[in-house]
């Protein structure tokens, strides 16, 4: 292999790599500019992703510089650490094709919201966060460290504050109990974007106390094979850091006009809370009083609220 061929091949590699690196940097910038970055990445991670766009850009510039050096015949920063690109054409096509695939998909396909398709694959949660264990009848709750609860019984005639007896808690559910007491006093309980999962979890933990209360929730319509007639779920995707770990959370709605609402359409539903069976589980269900079609929210995904429990 003479010098000329090596250099040309190296040049090709360097130019291609510069293009790919720049392509990724540009993809991130373009997503950020169009406001669609949060469709893929949680907001708290977006600053790091934007920084990495800078890093990618810097590396792309360097590759161009190295390509220039190769072009004028000088072999710059020769790093002989087994990083020489493979001489096989097939392997190179495969590898660079692998890098080009996300770029092509990213630029050519439109940016969409996660919807029913993914919700069906990931599995819908109908009672808030599944990692908070639901205690069986509250009388089995271990002695809570909260000073107010003195007797682990559900008798409303407990000393001090009747609410504490209604909403017993252990150290894991302490903040939910506090939130539950706050919600209990409200006329209309709204499931907000900021504390979406937490509110649903709170309602589900102490669901028997919220039967008959008015709840308002907004999200996209979801149905799957197990959803009975006249019912559908209003749900949102909750993202921890990126869409790979996002999970759909929702509330089952019972409505006479259920058939009117197509999957993935956005609704704001107000209704009365009740209990129902879903498979072999008891779940919350909202008897719809009012359902208003809305535009998809500017922040379609919800995120865990790190201020929850710190009030």
């Amino acid at each position: 292999m003479n010098r000329a061929t090596v250099d040309r091949r190296l040049l090709a590699h360097q130019l291609l790599r510069a293009a790919i690196l720049a392509g990724f940097a540009f993809l991130i910038v373009q997503l950020d500019r169009s406001g669609n970055l949060t469709l893929y990445i949680a907001p708290r991670m977006s600053i790091y992703v934007k920084l990495s766009a800078l890093g990618l850009y810097a590396t792309a510039v360097y590759q161009l510089y190295a390509a220039l050096q190769t072009w004028i015949g000088r072999r710059a920063a020769d790093c002989d650490c087994d990083h020489a690109p493979s001489p096989s054409l097939f392997k190179n096509v495969l590898i660079y094709g692998l890098f080009l695939l996300p770029l092509l998909l990213g630029f050519l396909l439109p940016d969409t919201l996660m919807g029913s398709t993914l919700a069906a694959k990931k599995g819908m949660s109908l009672g808030g966060s599944e990692s908070i264990s639901r205690q069986a009848p509250p009388r089995q709750t271990p002695a809570a460290p909260t000073p107010a609860a003195e007797q682990p019984s559900t008798e409303p005639a407990a000393p001090l504050d009747p609410l504490d007896a209604m909403f017993p808690a252990d150290i894991y559910t302490e903040s939910y109990a506090r939130h539950a007491k706050k919600l209990y006093g409200q006329e209309l309980i709204e499931v907000p974007e900021k504390q979406f999962i937490e509110t649903l979890t709170t309602l589900d933990l102490y669901r028997q106390h919220y039967v008959g209360k008015t709840i308002r929730i907004s999200g996209f319509v979801y149905r799957d094979g197990a959803t009975p007639e006249g019912q559908f779920v209003v749900s949102r995707f909750a993202m921890n850091c990126c869409s790979a770990d996002s999970m759909p959370y929702g509330l089952m709605i019972l409505s006479d006009e259920a058939a009117k609402y197509a999957n993935d359409s956005w609704l704001e539903v107000t209704g009365t809370l009740g209990l129902s069976q879903h498979g072999d589980q008891e779940i919350m269900i909202l008897q719809a009083i009012d359902a208003v079609p809305i535009e998809p929210s500017d922040t379609p995904y919800v995120y865990p609220d790190y201020d929850f429990g710190l009030d």
């Binding site: 990445i41 990495s52 996300p102 990213g106 396909l109 993914l118 990126c242």
Partner: peptide
């Protein structure tokens, strides 16, 4: 297309969040 789009969302987001 809905599957393809779902695939694209997962694919791109996994790559992007790993970049940093």
């Amino acid at each position: 297309t809905s599957h393809l789009q779902a695939f694209k969302i997962m694919f791109i987001s996994l790559i992007l969040e790993a970049f940093p």
